[in-house]
């Protein structure tokens, strides 16, 4: 009986320790780059954050070509200027574009990367000349299958662009009550800016890698009902992605919200 109790106690202790040592299963390498490995089109009216509170439902605009051969140019001033431009009607507005709708944008055209041409470095010669080109870009309502939104694969699967790009993202957070003193916590590759209900909430400048909770907003209030979250990510030669969640005063994820793209 004494041994049984001892064994039971050891088992309980191991169970308590286990989460710290094996928070998740091993992630075996997978060479697939299909879009549905990373995200899928929205098929339900609403979604909820994942177990860590990450916001997975976003309306994403196909990348706007913005050639940059190095991410070291992403100063606060630069990204404020670039994201301050009007790319499409309703930008940062309260009404979301419709899934599948298209916007016309004039971009600096850059030829697609030739993946089979060896391993070229980003060209570092003189300043390249880019011709202006009018393009139509489409909005896609997507549910990320990961904690992060892999914009790079969104781009490589749906467009010819992958580097030197700007992504716009928007989602709606529905709350059943006012939520004061929460923060928007973001990580992005590379620089990004984020707005909550039309107000700038957080900026991530510089040549950044995507790090969970890299930058957080000051305390803000998610109001009862509809809250619109906009984000813009810029990248030169990098694998664009972002992760965003709301955290409370103790740093715990805010999960009692719903997400939609309407």
């Amino acid at each position: 009986m004494k041994n049984t109790i001892k064994t039971f106690a050891v088992a309980i202790a191991l169970m308590l320790l286990l989460p710290a040592f094996s928070a998740r299963a091993q992630v075996y390498a997978d060479s697939s780059t299909d879009l549905d490995k990373y995200m899928v089109p929205v098929t339900t009216p609403t979604a909820v954050p994942d177990a860590q509170g990450f916001l997975g439902r976003w309306l994403l605009l196909e990348p706007i070509s913005k050639p940059n051969r190095s991410n070291t140019v992403f100063t606060d001033s630069y990204i404020r200027e670039v994201f301050g431009q009007q790319y499409f009607p309703g930008q940062l507005g309260n009404t979301l574009p419709k899934d599948g709708s298209k916007v016309k944008v004039t971009v600096e055209y850059q030829p697609p990367v030739n993946l089979t041409a060896g391993r070229p470095m980003m060209p570092m010669g003189g300043a390249p000349q880019y011709e202006k080109k009018d393009v139509q870009l489409k909005w896609h309502a997507m549910d990320s299958k990961r904690f992060n939104v892999k914009l790079f694969r969104f781009a490589t699967n749906l467009t010819e662009d992958r580097y030197g790009v700007i992504f716009w993202a928007v989602t709606v957070v529905e709350c059943d009550k006012d939520m004061p003193n929460v923060r928007l916590a973001v990580g992005s590759n590379s620089a990004s800016m984020w707005w909550v209900n039309g107000e700038e909430a957080v900026i991530l400048s510089g040549d950044r890698r995507m790090v969970m909770d890299d930058c957080t907003s000051q305390r803000l209030t998610l109001k009862k009902g509809r809250n619109v979250i906009w984000g813009a990510v810029i990248n030169g030669p990098g694998m664009s992605d972002f992760c965003a969640r709301f955290i409370d005063e103790e740093g715990n994820p805010v999960r009692n919200i719903t997400l939609s793209t309407k």
Binding site: V113, R119, M121, Y163
Partner: peptide, 10 residues
Amino acid sequence: TGGGLGGGHA
């Protein structure tokens, strides 16, 4: 192989 983000990554 060498680094660089501009091309393939075999």
